[in-house]
Amino acid sequence: MQNHEESGASCEFEDWGNFGDEDIMNQQSEIRAEEAQKVPFVADKFQKRCGAVPEPLSALASEYQSGSPILLEKIKMLGEQYAAIRRTRGDGNCFFRSFMFSYLEYILESQDRAEVDRVKANVEECRKTLQSLGYADFTFEDFFALIVVTIIFSKFVIDLSLASELAFLGSYSLGSWKAFFKEMNPPLGVEISQYLTMVSEFINLNASFCIHILSPDTFGWSVVMFFRFVASGEIRKRSEFFEPFVLGLTNATVEQFCKSSVEPMGEESDHVHITALSDALSVPIRVVYLDRSSCDTAGVSVNHHDFIPSGNLPKAASGSTEVISPFITLLYRPGHYDILYPK
């Protein structure tokens, strides 16, 4: 090949050029997108959509019917503790999306106003972290503003429902909503109409509200991106702590790891991302592992790991011996996270 005449060689290289890296990458991402689209961003628990509903755990079992007996045994054991699973799209962002969905549900169901204030303060801390790390404000401010408004909005919704004024929500006129959101000073790029839709969704069900926030037409992408910024900021801020874990995954530096595996959309999450997000926002997360490992001689058991943030937790003050229960439970199968609902 190296002895080809100039013209012949360049012709051959032209062909090679036509199958460049870009094409391979595009093809790869197309295949990935096509596969991912078979599952909605977050499956609706209450409606059948794309065949993906929050299914009872038996649905999970049928998936493995002809598969490993260890997995089937584990699913059976999961069924003793968990009622349902909600699937999320496997596009590399599933951890962050599952987290947001589950966390919003947690806030709305627990109606914990203090938690809302707490997370708001933590989000503010994360913003300062990014600033101190030298990120340009304008590259992340929209994402932060969006989350803050969403949090404030959740609190507002809690207030209304606490006051048993849920019915009143529906009768609230368009003009009053507009005035309300104007006062809240929504961030750039968030249309008031999007919130109005969210409100009407909420009137139906909390879950629809959460789904709406995560839908790509609303700001699903921005939400994922926000968490990526938060996780990256936390990892860089405490790079000495995270360095050994990063080295366990790849031989990149902490800085390179953040640039290549945390900040870009669609990069899958690992325990480093989860630890960082849980610590940064002080939200305890449980991850239940469904894989083929069978740990000890005593037979099959389902492993889980609790990510308990080191920072200030709301309930830590009331008693140091108190066991902190996770706000969020995710099911991990190699390469993917879904949401689990305890019984």
């Binding site: 032209e14 870009e22 990120y135 590259t139 992340f140 994402f143 991106m225 910024f229 900040e263 959309m265």
Partner: peptide, 21 residues
């Protein structure tokens, strides 16, 4: 850099993040 001027650079493809301006 391809003959048509397009660029093979990770941050313009799969390593993109809004952090880049």
């Amino acid at each position: 850099i391809y003959a048509d001027g397009s660029i093979c650079l990770d941050i313009l493809q799969n390593q993109w993040s809004p952090i880049y301006d």
